[in-house]
Amino acid sequence: MTDQTTPLLDIRGLVTEFSTETGVVRAVKGVDLTIGQGETVALVGESGSGKSVTSLSVMRLIQKGVGAITGGEMLFRTRSGQIVDLVQQPENAMRAIRGNEIGMIFQEPMTSLNPTQKVGAQIAEAARLHQNLTRKQAWARAVEMLALVEIPDPARRADVYPHQMSGGMRQRVMIAMALACNPALLIADEPTTALDVTVQLQILELMRRLQREIGMGILFITHNLGVVAEVADRVAVMYGGRIVETAPVRELFAHPSHPYTRGLLDSLPVVDHAARASGQELRLRAIPGSVVDPRNPPQGCDFNPRCAWVIPECRAAVPALLPVVPEHRARCIRWNEVHG
């Protein structure tokens, strides 16, 4: 029997560091994040925010010798109901979890598919790696998965190479491969960023449908707030390697309480039709400056050099994630004024 009350994945105080020529760079500085069964959590951030390093850490795909998880725990509830700490698992145990209990899809399907192997064979291989299937059964499973991700004529399409497919079709193949072993958790790192909006919508609708049917938890990494609004149940906003705000999706968009989240929402080009009709020039409230350089973070709050609400206390210490309302927290000492 599985325990439904504990989250599927419970990340506590995750720290991931990389060694560079100029010293140790801390890319993830103590991230807490939970994902429940059947829940979609969006991890949002710009380049250098640490969102992709967080997802790679969950998969334990940080390359040895380059970087390492140096702190925290990642408690994952396995199919058998056991709670394991992914940080402590030896590599062979991780191999049994990765691609099996935790599936993943990436931004550029062409670089994650083998160009010399037919797509059906690649999905079959993923299935056989973790399930006790004959070649024939595995191929049948591959065709079944291609049908599940709505690829027309799946028996014939299983027999083609990735380059014979469009970008959207390849992303469907990636999803089919990730789901071939019925994972409880799917990590999707910018899965629609390289796609046209029309194809992006198809993929998002597909993921929503599959989640309804299969009930997997999804960690959805993206920089696109429109996509967040479409898919997420809960959102965590990252900046400079830390979560700066987290809330249920409607609460976050309605009451952003960290200046960075507010700035991101204000930066979106939304046309004020009344202003335009009266001949006014439209301007965006852009966030000044550049995204934080992880090699050289500022003192105190990571966002303080770009922040409109900054006061001297902001430079003294990194603020804690403070409760705003239940389930909504913001890492800002002035959240009450930002919240508005």
Partner: peptide, 11 residues
């Protein structure tokens, strides 16, 4: 470009 930077360039 990142969203926050995109807005600067649009302006």
């Amino acid at each position: 470009l990142d969203v926050s930077i995109q807005a600067q360039i649009i302006n």
